[in-house]
Amino acid sequence: MQPSTKLYTDLSGYYDLMCADINYPEQSSGVRRLNQLFGNGGRSHLDLACGTGPHIWHFLDSGYQSQGLDINQPMLDKAKVRCPEAEFTLGDIGSFAFDQPFDLITCLLYSIHYSSDIARLKSCINSVHDALQTKGVFCFNAVDKNKINNNLFVNHTAEHQDGAFKFSSGWHYRGYGEQQSLKLCITKTTHNVSETWKDEHPMVALGFDELAQLLEPCFEVHIFEHDYGKIEPWDGQSGNALFVCVKA
């Protein structure tokens, strides 16, 4: 098994606990508002790196025809239980194709960075472009490599029938090159006995200017502050942002 997928397969049963502090309703609602503003009015939707399908669940509930793609079958198995009416495809966001084009493609929770390098990210962008209808929208969030604080970690705890969990995650960028990593740590404590899993996911690193340059040959690019409850232009300073890309 590849180290980069260990936590998402062996511990896929705990993935929703790991993401328990994410406001999926707000994120899904915010993306739908952006799609209404910039899109073609259609409701066919593909969620890349969909995980266990929480975003898809909210899109379906709002009348979208949603389906998901993920590289990990254990995640898709759980997504199918959560959203039995949706279709799910095992595949890589770096290279995919569908018979029918979509009106909206999302890639949330910074999953755009799962591309291993710039060449793979370009392939992902081209695949998205080919899979979109005219005036279709590609919406994702990203982190600017130049703004990463290697000492900043996000932590939260959760209770489960298997025990008490502590989750920690943080970005790391060495200061040069086109790779960054996401460091993850899970500690499970049951009856005062603790187990810890650590993993580090290699991801593509680039600044927002570089990212916009990659997107602009294929899309009209809009960059917003990383706030799903508001629609505000990116201030040019913050290291997290929402990208809304419209296919010409």
Rank of each mutant, 00 (worst) to 15 (best):
L184P: 00
F208D: 00
L132F: 07
Q161M: 14
N155M: 13
T187V: 00
F219Y: 09
A158R: 08
K188F: 09
T190E: 08
E210D: 07
N150R: 15
N192K: 10
K147H: 15
F167T: 07
S181G: 09
T157V: 14
G136K: 02
M203T: 13
C139Q: 01
H129G: 03
N192S: 14
K198Q: 14
K183C: 02
Q213N: 01
A131P: 02
F219D: 00
E195I: 04
H226C: 13
L152G: 11
D209L: 14
V154Q: 01
S169A: 10
A158N: 12
K188T: 13
V143P: 03
G175H: 11
H226D: 05
T134Y: 05
C185R: 02
S127D: 07
V128W: 00
A131M: 07
F138W: 01
T134D: 01
F138N: 03
G175Q: 09
K135C: 05
L214N: 04
D209G: 12
C139V: 11
K145C: 04
G175A: 03
F167N: 04
F167D: 02
W197D: 00
G207L: 11
H222R: 06
D199L: 05
L152E: 14
L214V: 01
E159A: 15
Q133S: 10
H226I: 10
T187L: 07
K145A: 08
L182E: 04
A205Q: 00
H172G: 03
E195D: 07
N146C: 14
F208T: 05
G207K: 09
N146Y: 08
E178V: 11
K166A: 15
V137W: 03
Q213A: 15
T157P: 02
K183V: 05
T134A: 05
N149F: 07
H191E: 13
N151K: 15
K145R: 06
D209R: 13
Q180T: 14
Q213Y: 08
T189N: 05
L184Q: 02
E216G: 04
W197F: 14
N192V: 10
T190H: 15
Y176Q: 09
N149Y: 02
